[in-house]
Design a binder for these strands. Sequence first.
DNA 1: AGACCCACGGCGATTATTTA
DNA 2: TAAATAATCGCCGTGGGTCT
Length: 299
Amino acid sequence: MRRSTMRVIDGMHRLRAAQIRGHSEIAVRFFEGSEADAFVLAVESNAGHGLPLTLTERTAAAARIVLTHPEWADRAIASATGLSATTVGALRRSEGAESPAPAARIGRDGKVRPLSTEEGRRMAGSLITESPDAPLREIAKKAGISPGTVRDVRERLQRGEDPVPATRRSSKPGKQARLTGVAQDRPEGRGQVRPHEQSRSQLADGSSAPTPESAAEELTQVNLDVLFRNLCKDPSLRHTEMGRLLLRMLDMQLMGAKCWSGITQAIPAHRTEMVSAAATQCARAWEEFASELALRRFA
DNA sequence: AGACCCACGGCGATTATTTA
DNA sequence: TAAATAATCGCCGTGGGTCT
């Protein structure tokens, strides 16, 4: 149970059972943390006990964790949601581009691993060339990489090789796409650059970050029916009162959109002006709601 | 103190299996 | 049956423990 909101994270069925049995008290374990952390805990609990989430629910949960905890490694998120790391990695590529990617990730072991050591390796290479007798730890500290990596750099230099393995070089086609989201020389079809990847590459260039307007514009191209079905899969919406209210409102919107002509015919002439004003205010309210959400995402 | 070893975990690519 | 997902492989990085 989250102490700040007294909301049940896990054990809703046990709580219900206790209420039915007439118990007025139940032992709880309090959780201190953010809303995002509480969500992760709820997903982990569901994945762990006898009432696991469906595949679509787990996928939706993983997509949310990717956004709220971008520093978590794929395997860490996979472990929490019961999906495979491959699936989480694919989700990150499709969802993660919407937020700035951290330079390193925290694994299940709590260790931090950088997404690219190219810069550190090159600096270590220079330092080793300048001072061949310098201690590995000293070079590691200056270059910002681990002593083990410095040793590998030194061995590579001794063999006359590049300090950065070919598979870790940003210039390698396809690899850069993994490390920074920049697509290079991708083949047609599967490797085509998607809109969100383009906006991420702009970030890597240091030019412009995606604005709330551009991100919203991107999603508004998606059919409302598709967006609604996708939102319905998210347990964080389905399992909260306000979330369900939003889904019902969107459902009504969808239903209305399918029978505008019938509704228009049903409105008497003397009420058209009033209904028009009401509809305009509704539209404004949705717009303000959308703007507020967009600003919150990029705050 | 510095060097080295090694367990653990990261990733992409590929293949096998499951799901809708 | 096609698409999605999981499993596996090989390579690489980190950091704690051990050796010199």
